[in-house]
Design a protein around this nucleic acid. Structure first.
Lengths: 141, 141
DNA sequence: CATTAATTTATAATTATTCTTATTTACGAA
DNA sequence: TTCGTAAATAAGAATAATTATAAATTAATG
């Protein structure tokens, strides 16, 4: 968490209490919360916080690559403080339901795209959307 | 295009002129248009068409897997009539900028996930988001 | 401490999408 | 061909997520 202060400082951003809490909420949630959800959480410790601030803060974090913005098919933005490369498992209805870390896969893809370039483009990052159904049984439509 | 009529019929959906035009616009666009863009195009040949109809139609197509819904980081939905497996190349600002077809890659991923199961989940589909910068030179921020 | 630019707050505005309801239409049956 | 009916469309209102605006507050600096 103090890392955040340093990072903010290094980018000329102020370490406001709002920013610290927003970041903390993201770190403590493995559920990719929406702006609204972050707002509710931060409000518990900082009741005066404004929803605009949450949006501003999240957007600032995204711009400075401290946080990733993830979209599901419903179009509501979700935020993810884990910026190391990882992938997302989606349910068939488009919800992000889990993170998926896989170093071997990363290696495999890296090898593949080292050999096979896509002409005209330089690859910065590859993200997988793994669409799954849960195995138990068909869930309600 | 007559395939569409058949497909609609086979699903008990009516082949309305609106649906035919919406589909045609999608087929003729390699740019993953938004609902608004589809609306503008369809309006040219069918001036009385309603934006609601465009949304309804697109949603119907998505439900019946005739069309894919794609999201970029801006949260505006885009639609893609090419439902065969392919991936999307994104610019760093989150726009979908190109399609990427790669059978070898599909095979590779298929092999990989045939061996390595993700427990609790059954994989239905894998989509890559390939984030790229164009090679010319850094484009404006 | 005082200064100042950055940030936050509160609220209004915007925008994409969904909902509602009356009207129209496609399509199978007669 | 015409008819009946469920399905689909049109128009506009409603909703929800996000962005913009402007005044008040605050972090960082000297």
């Amino acid at each position: 968490m103090n890392k955040l202060k340093e990072k903010l400082a290094s980018k000329g951003l102020k370490a406001t209490v709002q920013r610290l809490y927003v970041y903390e909420v993201l770190l403590n949630s493995r559920q990719h919360p929406t702006a609204e959800e972050v707002y509710r959480e931060v409000s518990r410790v900082l009741p005066s916080v404004s929803l605009s601030t949450i949006y501003n803060t999240l957007e600032t974090f995204v711009e400075h690559k401290l946080v990733n913005k993830v979209h599901n098919d419903s179009g509501i933005a979700r935020y993810d403080a884990f910026v190391e490369t990882h992938h997302h498992i989606y349910s068939e209805n488009g919800e992000v339901i889990a993170d998926y870390y896989d170093e071997k896969l990363a290696e495999l893809l890296n090898d593949y795209f080292t050999k096979k370039k896509i002409k005209g483009y330089e690859i910065k990052e590859i993200r997988l959307q793994i669409i799954c159904s849960t195995k138990e049984k068909e869930s309600k439509k």
